[in-house]
Design a protein around this nucleic acid. Structure first.
Length: 317
DNA sequence: AATGCGGCCAACCGCTTGTAA
DNA sequence: TTTACAAGCGGTTGGCCGCAT
């Protein structure tokens, strides 16, 4: 038994919206809101449309804060970086781009950015050595906020993909490895990134993982003394996994094999990291944790507001 | 001018997730 | 705990438009 359809598709209008329908929907939502019930909305608004269709029209087109087209280089970088990190999670990617919708970002990627990324991937010179080399870019966040360190995976030829252990989302995306790494290749450090503090914050998310994106935002929003400690560690002179931790930003999942072996975080979940960086501490159960330095390790027993893993706590120093 | 082709994008489809009863 | 339903999400489709021939 399948689920009953949300509306009678034979009787509702489908296809492009007319200006009159747009105005009906717009004025209804303006005066009543969506009411949390899109299914009932069309009838109340006097529209002969499926509720899902109304919702889509509002979210993707009629919402007042929507931007169409005119993507900036900065937005391109954010999209590429996030795509490389998390795959086709368009709603998450769009949430990092004010005024953009998931549908819009998805279309933009599929029609333009993917090709651009592919082209750049194919123009990447081969890596100098097989040893993975991670680029660190340091940015100071506006307002004296946390210094953050970007860790980007190197542009990698397809032959290296297996060893890179991309996140499940990336691995399962239809874009394939070439696209994924092409996106990474596009994400070289650029002056424009450094000029925009907000962009720097967003870029951090792009280099890590979804939850890390939230964590990066959380760093600025809520900080305990432990958080401060993490964020104040001076920038490392070299580029190792431990350095990444020391900089206060969780690791990209490509570091996992290097750190603990692929079996430690079965789903590419890297939140072995530091509880204090997580937005919702109470809901996160860590499978392991790694202290960025011995001082943080010392403070760990005193931290009472995070869910601590049963075992596997290590200091990286 | 007519036709074909490819790019673009709005909209749809169907599956997954969240939640209330 | 189970079930039903709405919302959310990502993949896909279809039609419009501009450009090349």
């Amino acid at each position: 038994m399948g689920r009953a359809p949300c509306c009678d598709k034979a009787s509702v209008k489908r296809g492009p919206w007319s200006p009159e329908e747009d105005e009906l929907l717009r004025s209804y939502v303006r005066s009543h809101g969506t009411g949390g019930n899109w299914i009932a909305l069309p009838q109340k608004a006097g529209l002969n449309r499926c509720g899902k269709s109304c919702r889509l029209r509002w979210l993707n087109y009629l919402r007042p804060d929507i931007k169409h087209g005119g993507y900036t280089d900065q937005e391109d970088r954010i999209i590429c970086s996030l795509y490389n990190s998390i795959g086709s999670r368009w709603s998450i990617i769009a949430s990092k781009l004010p005024g953009r919708t998931d549908n819009d970002v998805k279309n933009y990627w599929n029609t333009k950015l993917k090709k651009k990324a592919m082209a750049m991937h194919h123009h990447q010179p081969p890596p100098p050595q097989q040893q993975q080399h991670y680029h660190h870019h340091h940015h100071r966040v506006a307002g004296g906020g946390a210094r953050v360190t970007l860790v980007s995976p190197p542009p990698a030829p397809q032959s290296q993909c297996a060893s890179m252990q991309p996140s499940p989302a990336s691995a399962s995306s239809s874009g394939g490895d070439a696209c994924s790494f092409g996106a990474a290749a596009m994400y070289s450090p650029s002056p424009s990134t450094q000029q925009a503090p907000q962009a720097a914050t967003l870029a951090v998310a792009g280099y890590t993982s979804v939850a890390t994106a939230a964590a990066a935002a959380a760093v600025a929003a809520q900080r305990s003394p432990l958080d401060e400690l993490i964020c104040q560690v001076p920038p490392p002179p070299t580029t190792t996994a431990a350095d990444c931790w020391a900089s206060g930003v969780t690791l990209d999942d490509v570091f996992l094999p290097e750190l603990v072996g692929a079996g430690e975080f079965p789903n590419g979940d890297l939140f072995g990291g530091f509880g204090p960086l997580l937005q919702d501490r109470s809901s996160m159960e860590l499978s392991a944790c790694y202290f960025p330095n011995s001082a943080a390790a010392d403070m760990w027993p005193a931290a009472t507001d995070i869910v601590k893993p049963a075992g596997l706590c290590h200091s990286l120093t």
